[in-house]
Write a protein that binds this DNA or RNA. Structure first.
Lengths: 344, 344
DNA sequence: TTGTAGGCGTTATCAT
DNA sequence: ATGATAACGCCTACAA
């Protein structure tokens, strides 16, 4: 039993392929009720399913969107995808998901694969610092949305959906200084070239500057747990006054908690603790952890809407340059208070 | 600048499309070094990228695999995908990911979409209780692997990769009884028709039977937090002796923790607490939580390997019935001890 | 209301 | 070592 084609249906139902094609596409306008039911019956009987591959040949659109996330095993990325999918699926778009795994070379390969698939659009949580890595996408005129992270040299015409990282961290820095913390130790883990963490560090830096407190950046990169413990221990030993630790990404908080446990350092008494988080587990750690919270699903939804606008799937004129409909959006970061920091 | 095709390259490089095609497919065997470099140069210059859609027309294989997870915003599903992707990507397969969102009707729709895409294979974390929902896949001879959950009436010929749910829960039940717990309250949250939780309940039930202790199943379904609190309060009020609460899925543990907090019930003193978990956050809640731990990534990897074997992508003879190469695999559940339960 | 035929970009077969 | 050409399954003018 070879694949059932439109021709098989036509033959069995005693009509032409054109009529069947019309039927498949819901073009019932010019078609007698008799033939319509006859075709329906045949389609059901032979379990006919139109070939998406063949369709794509004839149409300009594949109705497939490509998504590249930085690290799918990070909850942030999976919630991001969840938001994207919730928008695209109802709109009739299938999604190819790729995991760059924090690697720019893998990301590069995946962009090529997706362009080869002739996807109708691309949503990327970028890894590369230079926008050059994404030029091939633009030069193929494929609708594109960058989400969560930003290249410094990204052209204005390219869509972008990010959280309000710098501003929120600036405010948080002021708050911590006002609570009487003398030192703000900012821990990040940047395995890829770019990340939202850079903007966050900048926010804390300017706040520290403004309030004349000390900001100490610590890049954990891919160092191991031992390294982190030693680093925290040493840093705290050399600082005088009250210190607060800030984790710039959810997963890193795990490692910091483990380190504090091993070192026998308690919060909020020995040290304050604040973290970015994309989930709700940290509220159960002691009396909860003071959080900077993003909404990854909202980021995903906005990114997908943005993309659909470019594709022109929402009824607007789909002529002209898709990039003309690109938008740059910033979503808020909210603060969740908890007792892991202490005002003096 | 319309899409650049193989014909454009042929014209520019002064060769036939056949030669270009050979080049694209790395068929350099019969080709002068001169033409080879000439084509290479032209391809680079015009930024030619072969059309995956057109390829599929000519070949039987799309090199695309479909994956349907139950709920992508659940960490389990995203780690599952991560394991699947890590196997599939290096093997040259692109992945379409769909989120059934715990809905059988949505799952049904997604199966159709994926079959329309003519995917080379399908990995499903099933929602439907009856295998009938997946018959269309089998009848189209599409390689298939069911993962994490199982339909009771699944044919032997269909591949399956699951965790050792019943047996591990049976052993856990015995352990808890031996620790002196008189009542085992088993909380589940089954929003879809099927889930791995059923097997877990069965395991606890047989253990309770064997040790003559009481097993009380509580299905939280989609009830809200208030309901859960009342239910826990009432249940505990009516039980005499020592009681342990068991959460059959990671996310439910959140809600249980919140309920206990509100009710002012402490563990391990007032009640014991045990949970299934797919992540590592719970170790930071008090002194950690006694866990039954699966390895979702391993489940994903095994499922993907299983699928690749069926597709015949790993060099075996790819003739005959793909289903003949289906395997049914059970992976272990490990126990992580912690002080959220107390031996009498 | 229904049918015919050409073409979408590739690859496979069969020449040269 | 290289070419010409016929499919693959569908859609869409253009006819009838």
């Amino acid at each position: 039993m070879a694949k059932v084609t439109i021709a098989d249906i036509a033959r069995e139902a005693q009509v032409s392929v054109t009529t069947v094609s019309r039927f498949i596409n819901g073009n019932y306008g010019k078609m007698s009720q008799a033939t319509r039911t006859r075709i329906q019956e045949t389609v059901d009987r032979l379990e006919y399913r139109p070939s998406a591959s063949a369709r794509r040949m004839r149409q300009q659109s594949t109705h497939v969107v490509g998504v590249i996330v930085a690290d799918i095993s990070n909850v942030f990325s999976s919630l991001l995808f969840s938001g994207i999918y919730a928008q695209l699926q109802p709109a009739g778009y299938d999604v190819m998901l790729m995991n760059a795994n924090n690697s720019t070379t893998q990301e590069h390969d995946e962009i090529n694969r997706l362009l080869s698939q002739e996807v109708d659009g691309l949503i990327i949580q970028p890894n590369a610092r230079e926008f050059a890595a994404y030029e091939p996408i633009v030069s193929s005129r494929t609708p594109l949305v960058m989400v969560d992270r930003e290249c410094a040299d990204q052209p204005d015409g390219v869509a972008k959906v990010v959280a309000d990282n710098e501003e929120s961290c600036h405010r948080m820095g002021l708050t911590l200084a006002d609570m009487g913390y003398d030192n703000i130790v900012v821990l990040s883990r940047t395995r890829s070239e770019i990340s939202a963490q850079a903007a966050r560090v900048a926010g804390f830096a300017s706040a520290a500057e403004e309030r004349h407190v000390l900001m100490v950046p610590v890049e954990a990169d891919s160092h191991d747990q031992d390294w982190l413990e030693r680093r925290i221990r040493t840093t705290l030993d050399h600082l005088s006054g009250r210190t607060v630790l800030v984790s710039l990404m959810g997963p890193l908080l795990f490692d910091i908690l483990a380190a504090l446990k091993t070192l026998g350092i308690r919060f909020p008494n020995d040290v304050g603790l604040v973290s970015f988080d994309d989930w709700r587990w940290s509220q159960y750690v002691q009396d909860g952890i003071y959080l900077l919270e993003q909404d990854p699903q909202a980021l995903g939804r906005e990114a997908a809407r943005n993309l659909l606008d470019q594709i022109g799937a929402r009824g607007e004129d789909r002529t002209g340059d898709p990039y003309a409909r690109s938008r740059q959006i910033t979503l808020p970061v909210t603060v969740v208070e908890a007792d892991s920091v202490l005002a003096r």
